[in-house]
């Protein structure tokens, strides 16, 4: 949505829609009937299978409902309850910590790795791509066991190493900050290969001429990375940024598996996230209305974060 400005001058997503004179709006729509026709199957499926559950969920967020019997109107009660909950605020704090630490690392690391793995100079890069992608296809249950074995306090392999080299044990699974770091490591481990793949796809779209031209102008590898790769990849970087943000605001699996006996909350609630709370609110505590309301709070946060990122990209361009 952003880079095409330089290539072709097509207005980006964020620019004001160029609707003609109001009187001709129907004419405009008729003129574009083929466009509507082409996207209509998608939107019909979308409306039925994603729109209806969404609407149901909005309605449900204003009800008290235990998942059985008639829902009872509760107005804004669920939202009020959530907004003054200290646990929700704590979980939000945890999520922001995860975002601040992980977002730049994931974007930076995956872009650099993808650039390296795209370079014909690197021998064995096809094999490396597969290695990096393995976390994405390793059974989550088994991954959780391995991380438990690595990180546990008394007999964990990492603590064994740390003790052997004289640093001493770290309470990876029993103290607040180490527990957060454990979650961060597990997320990083799982998310890198996936995002490297997306970055690789994006890199393929950059015309080789641009690099050739940069070489002629005397750019070195680093300069090419910052002056060709990064600008050309802005759309894909934005995609990775937004999907990573959505993923982190919906973080669930890693804390849930690592701290299963406390429903993902971990020591001192340090790894509780909005989604671990939402899951236990729905499927353990059977408060479906409240869980739906929490879903919308999460969605609003995601939309907010997305808009900030879109704005940042636009500002950087201007």
């Amino acid at each position: 949505m952003t880079t095409q400005n330089q290539i072709s001058g097509t207005p980006g997503l964020m620019s004001a829609p160029q609707v003609g004179r109001r009187s001709s709006i129907w004419h405009q729509i008729w003129k574009h009937r083929i466009e509507y026709l082409l996207i209509s199957p998608f939107f019909i499926i979308f409306g039925i299978f994603h729109g209806y559950p969404l609407a149901f969920s909005i309605w449900l967020s204003f009800q008290r409902w235990q998942g059985i019997g008639e829902p009872r109107w509760f107005g804004l009660g669920n939202y009020e309850r959530l907004l003054k909950s200290e646990r929700i605020i704590g979980a939000l704090g945890n999520t922001i910590i995860f975002l601040i630490i992980l977002l730049p690392i994931i974007i930076g690391l995956t872009l650099v790795l993808a650039t390296i793995l795209n370079s014909p100079q690197i021998k064995g890069r096809k094999v490396l791509r597969v290695l990096y992608f393995l976390p994405y296809i390793t059974s989550a249950v088994i991954v959780a066991i391995i991380f438990q074995l690595l990180l546990n306090n008394n007999s964990g392999w990492i603590n064994g190493i740390l003790e052997a080299v004289g640093i001493g044990r770290v309470g990876w699974l029993i103290e607040a900050w180490p527990a957060r770091i454990s979650v961060i490591l597990m997320v990083l481990w799982g998310a890198t290969g996936y995002n490297v793949l997306i970055m690789l796809g994006g890199l393929q779209g950059i015309p080789a001429e641009l690099y050739d031209a940069a070489s002629v102008d005397g750019a070195d590898t680093i300069q090419k990375f910052f002056f060709v790769t990064v600008p050309m990849m802005r759309g894909v970087i934005l995609f990775v940024g937004i999907t990573t943000t959505i993923g982190l605001l919906n973080l669930f699996t890693q804390p849930w598996l690592l701290f299963s006996s406390s429903s993902g909350s971990g020591p001192d609630d340090a790894t509780a996230t909005l989604n671990t709370i939402q899951y236990s609110t729905a499927f353990q505590a059977s408060r479906y209305g409240e869980a739906a309301a929490l879903g919308f709070i999460i969605a609003i946060l995601v939309i907010f974060a997305t808009l900030i990122q879109l704005r940042l990209v636009r500002t950087a361009e201007a």
Binding site: S85, Q284, A285
Partner: peptide, 15 residues
Amino acid sequence: YGAATGADVLESSID
């Protein structure tokens, strides 16, 4: 009972 002893009430406060 499930909710009261569950994640969002007693379980998260007792420690």
